[in-house]
Write a protein that binds this DNA or RNA. Structure first.
Length: 286
DNA sequence: TGACAGGTACATG
DNA sequence: CATGTACCTGTC
């Protein structure tokens, strides 16, 4: 196995994996994690050296070993993990009086906003409606097993890539049903067909300003404001976007009396990720 | 064991 | 335009 080792600030693969923005980062049997993205698999393991690890989700960074060469790391994963960004700058955005956010940031230290594939985010979040996170993971895995391709490595069990639009466009109903898609079957397949037909061009949409991007995404059947916001934030890195699910609604209503502070707007998507993570994993802020 | 899931489309008022 | 309801099914 090729290895590349790097010390990274404000980086916790565990916190990222559990933060609800991705469904295909899973624990390995030795305390590391497998990252499945862009048709590749990467193993990430904290070496336990040179970090300020205080345990669990409070890990603030440290030395990590990656199962790739420096070239692939620089070309693919540095960008995926958003490593050129200083997350201390985001942390400092918390208003002095905002105890809730400060607590949430301390708890979720090491979370980063992944730069994920817009197509995968679109389908994954269409599937996510009325599903728990474990159920979403199961559906996405089954979809990949049925319609993706196998990814063989010398360091991990075989994984399957996220399906291309062509494969989902011609998928049969029975197989899609076996992936647990339920009433979302036609949402997923019709979206895939639109991409194949060129009727939906995600790369083109990604050039739009955030409000127009979300408006266009919501024209897709099965995509409402929440799913469109998730695609914008997690797939198009629109950090000004706040997906409001049941957890964030409770936080906004209860803690912020109806709306987040205006000062947060440009990076509210990052800050809400800490809030969401803290609320969901602790069941607080409700 | 039945309620509940990180919502959305569609029908009403 | 705001509110109410049905919806597939895995997971606990």
């Amino acid at each position: 196995m090729t290895k590349f080792t790097k010390t990274i600030e404000d980086f916790s693969i565990e916190a990222i994996a559990e933060s609800g923005q991705c469904f295909r980062i899973v624990p390995s049997d030795d305390g590391g994690y497998y990252v499945n993205a862009f048709g590749r698999v990467l193993k990430v393991k904290n070496t336990g050296e040179g970090n300020e690890n205080t345990g669990g989700h409070e890990s603030n960074g440290g030395c990590y070993e990656f199962s790739c060469g420096e070239e692939e790391f620089t070309k693919v994963w540095k960008d995926y993990f958003d490593l050129d960004t200083d997350y201390g700058a985001y942390r400092s955005l918390a208003l002095p009086c905002d105890e809730y956010l400060k607590t949430a940031i301390a708890f979720g230290s090491g979370i980063r906003m992944l730069r994920q594939d817009p197509w995968e985010m679109l389908i994954s979040f269409i599937i996510s409606q009325r599903k728990s996170v474990p159920a979403i993971r199961t559906s996405v895995e089954r979809l990949s097993e049925n319609f993706g391709h196998r990814i063989e490595t010398d360091f991990a069990p075989a994984f399957c890539s996220f399906p291309e639009a062509e494969a989902l466009a011609k998928a049969d109903t029975e197989t899609l049903a076996s992936c647990g898609l339920g009433y979302r079957i036609d949402y997923v397949r019709d979206t895939a067909r639109m991409v194949c037909d060129g009727e939906l061009d995600l790369a083109a949409l990604n050039k739009l300003e955030t409000p127009a991007l979300i408006e266009e995404l919501m024209k897709i059947k099965g995509v409402g404001i929440k799913v469109a916001s998730c695609v914008a934030l997690f797939g198009c890195h629109r950090l000004d976007t706040v997906p409001v699910d049941v957890w964030m609604k409770r936080v906004i209503d209860t803690v912020y009396h109806g709306s987040l502070p205006e000062e947060y707007r440009p990076y509210a998507g990052v800050l809400q990720q800490y809030m969401f993570n803290y609320a969901r994993l602790n069941k607080v802020g409700i």
